[in-house]
């Protein structure tokens, strides 16, 4: 149904050359009121460390006012193969659109 590794395709294979720290996804908010958007990822040992690295890499320049860091393994993402049925906008259901309804002539503010 869903894929545990949300943003990458496969776990890195092959022999470990040096211990690789966990991957964290970074979200930045550029200005108050703006949504947090995915910026990229960092490797880190702890949440605190991830926050520091995210700050250094993704908030080093620009106008970031807030950061989120999330362990990549915690993100559950939809599978591309299910995009069709999952995100069908249901456009065939005309009653979901305001144009479907009749309004008596002269009535305003509806």
């Amino acid at each position: 149904m869903t894929d545990e590794s949300a943003l990458s395709t496969a776990a890195p294979g092959g022999g470990s050359i040096e211990t690789q720290w966990d991957l964290w996804e970074v979200f930045t908010q550029e200005g108050a009121g703006a949504p947090h958007e995915h910026a990229g990822s960092v490797h880190a040992t702890t949440a605190e460390h991830a926050m520091q690295n995210a700050r250094d890499v993704y908030a080093r320049r620009g106008k970031v006012v807030s950061l989120w860091v999330v362990p990549t393994a915690s993100i559950v993402a939809s599978a591309p193969s299910e995009a069709g049925p999952l995100f069908d906008p249901g456009n065939d259901k005309a009653y979901r659109h305001p144009q479907f309804y009749k309004t008596p002539r002269g009535v305003r503010g509806l």
Binding site: L7, S8, T9, A10, A11, P12, G13, G14, S16, I17, E18, T19, Q20, L23, G40, S41, V42, H43, V57, R60, R61
Partner: peptide, 27 residues
């Protein structure tokens, strides 16, 4: 020079989404 380091990190992170590990790339 600090920017160049940051740019390297942006692209490593993009490369990792293709299933290759950072330690492998550095190696």
């Amino acid at each position: 020079v600090q920017d160049e380091a940051g740019h390297g990190l942006y692209i490593y992170c993009g490369t990792e989404t293709l299933g290759v590990g950072r330690e492998e790339l550095v190696d």
